[in-house]
Structures are given as structure tokens and as C-alpha cells.
Amino acid sequence: MLALALAAVVRRVVVAIGLTVALVVVPYLLATSGPAPWLLMGTPAAGFAITQSVPTFAHVDVDLSPISGYHPLPPWAGLAVTCGYAVLALGAAAHRPPREGRRRRPATAP
């Protein structure tokens, strides 16, 4: 839905695909390669938390990284962040004025 809404906002498929990748995949890759877990809390990449398989306990010592299955948000919150971005993009697409297109001449009979 996020990619579809972005395509409606920018009206270019290639630009929408690039924006979607930049908003979802790039923050996830940055969070897995470095100490930036906040990227998985405030970007649409938070939706990956739905795949979380490692619960956090204070008394258990585990590797807290997205590669090992840990995400800083609970699954429902990560999905809510991604849905929030989709709703914002759909709202922006709904409030965008219609495109000024070329007018077609009426067909005339020969």
C-alpha cells in the first residue's frame, strides 16, 4: 500500500519504487550493519518487527540485532508504524490536485 500511495503522489512508477526502497530497505540495511536501532523505530522499516522471533528479557543475554531476529519494537507497533506511513501517503495522494492533461479533440467522421 505504501508503494501504491507513493506512486499516486509522485505519478511516476520508477520514482515510487525508488522511494519505497529508500524508505523500507535502506534503513533496515543501515540498522543491521551499524548501531542504529532507532531506524527500525521511526521509518517504515519498522514493519519488519512483525517477523520478530526473539523476545527480550532482562536476565537473558542474547545478541540484540535485527539479523538475529530482534527488533526494537513489538510486532504490533512495527506494523502500526508502517501502516501509519501508508495512511499518510494515501492521504497525500487523495489531496493532490488532478493532473493537467492534454485535451483530446473530439473524433470527427471523415
Rank of each mutant, 00 (worst) to 15 (best):
M1I: 10
L2N: 08
A3Y: 03
L4A: 14
V9H: 05
V9K: 01
R11G: 08
V13G: 08
V15D: 04
G18D: 11
L19C: 13
V21R: 08
V24T: 15
V26Y: 02
P27N: 01
Y28P: 00
A31T: 01
P35N: 06
P37I: 05
L39C: 00
L39D: 00
L40F: 03
M41R: 11
G42S: 02
T43Q: 06
T43W: 01
P44G: 13
G47E: 05
F48I: 09
T51A: 15
A58Y: 06
D63K: 10
D63I: 12
L64E: 11
I67N: 14
G69Y: 05
Y70I: 01
H71D: 05
H71R: 06
L73S: 04
L73K: 02
P74W: 01
P75C: 06
V81G: 05
V81L: 10
C83F: 11
A86L: 08
V87L: 12
L88M: 14
L88S: 06
L90K: 05
L90M: 13
L90A: 15
G91H: 04
A93R: 07
A93Y: 04
H95C: 15
R96H: 13
R99T: 13
R99C: 03
E100C: 11
P106D: 11
T108M: 11
T108H: 11
A109I: 10
